[in-house]
């Protein structure tokens, strides 16, 4: 008998094993829901699948009576726009400052302490200030995401830039490269796939800040909706929304992973992930 650490599931067994916990969760939910509803048909905590289905239909397919919009889609569009802007701007800031701090010692000496301090501020503590300064509109939500995510990306990329083998930078200099050329042709191209990694890692935090901001001041968005219907204990809406947000998060991550593999073949070869 081999040791446990040497036993590997086949591909299909692996997939089945991975699905198993989800099935178990589903069964537990169904059982719990049935038990509670048998007790009290008006129970709202664990709605039956039929009422979840009704809620999904209401939110995702039928125009709302009040505004005429299909709520799930307007909420999704609003949230994804804020998330995309916040994360996109953070990525840009992260790349520019990460590269600058990672390659130019004078900039590092001047700015590193500031970036480190900024990254220690709990972003949610800034939210009131952001609302006061930027108003309750889109800007303050995007800025919150940027505050929450950009310092992490800056520091991660700075670290990665400093980890590039010194030999490569020396080699570039022996080919006559100026600082600008080294940044353009050696540092940035090698950091781009790492930037995608950093963005993927920070998406969880970005969602957190997005939903927090929407919960407090918004008129649409996935986070806004969840916190709005919570007042009526409308679990039949909250649960599908949570599943939907999870699915969106998964898909964004998948998309970034595929994009990275397509665009940076060398990086994934280097890390032994095959082609």
């Amino acid at each position: 008998m081999k040791r446990l650490i040497n036993l590997r599931p086949s591909r299909s067994t692996g997939i089945l094993l991975g699905l198993l916990p989800f099935v178990v969760l589903l069964v537990v939910y169904l059982a719990g829901s049935q038990a509670r509803l048998a007790d009290n048909p008006n129970d709202k905590l664990l709605p039956a699948f039929s009422s979840l289905g009704d809620a999904v239909e209401r939110m995702a397919l039928e125009p709302s009576k009040r505004s005429g919009d299909i709520l799930l889609w307007t909420d999704t569009a609003a949230s994804l726009q804020r998330l995309g802007l916040g994360v996109g701007i953070s990525a840009l800031i992260g790349l520019v400052f990460g590269v600058a701090l990672g390659t130019v010692p004078y900039l590092r000496a001047g700015l590193s302490p500031l970036v480190s301090s900024l990254s220690l501020i709990p972003p949610l503590a800034l939210l009131p200030i952001l609302f006061i300064v930027f108003g309750l509109g889109e800007l303050s939500k995007v800025v919150l995401i940027v505050f929450g995510v950009a310092p992490f990306i800056i520091r991660d990329l700075q670290q990665r830039a400093q980890e590039l083998p010194a030999e490569l930078l020396v080699k570039a200099q022996t080919l006559g490269a100026s600082t600008w050329q080294i940044i353009l042709r050696v540092v940035v191209p090698q950091l781009l796939p790492r930037l995608l990694d950093a963005v993927r890692l920070s998406l969880g935090a970005a969602w957190l800040f997005l939903i927090a901001a929407e919960a407090i001041a918004a008129t649409d968005g996935l986070g806004y909706r969840i916190f709005l219907v919570r007042r009526y204990l409308a679990m039949d809406v909250v649960l599908p929304y949570v599943v939907w947000i999870t699915l969106l998060a998964y898909l964004t991550d998948l998309l970034l992973r595929i994009a990275s593999r397509r665009a940076f073949r060398w990086y994934h070869q280097l890390n032994g992930e095959g082609n």
Partner: peptide, 18 residues
């Protein structure tokens, strides 16, 4: 370092992304 002096190290002498 400059263009008049070329170097080959034991490792890490070529650019992995090119």
């Amino acid at each position: 370092p400059g263009r008049d002096r070329g170097i080959v190290f034991q490792r890490y002498s070529v650019f992995p992304h090119l």
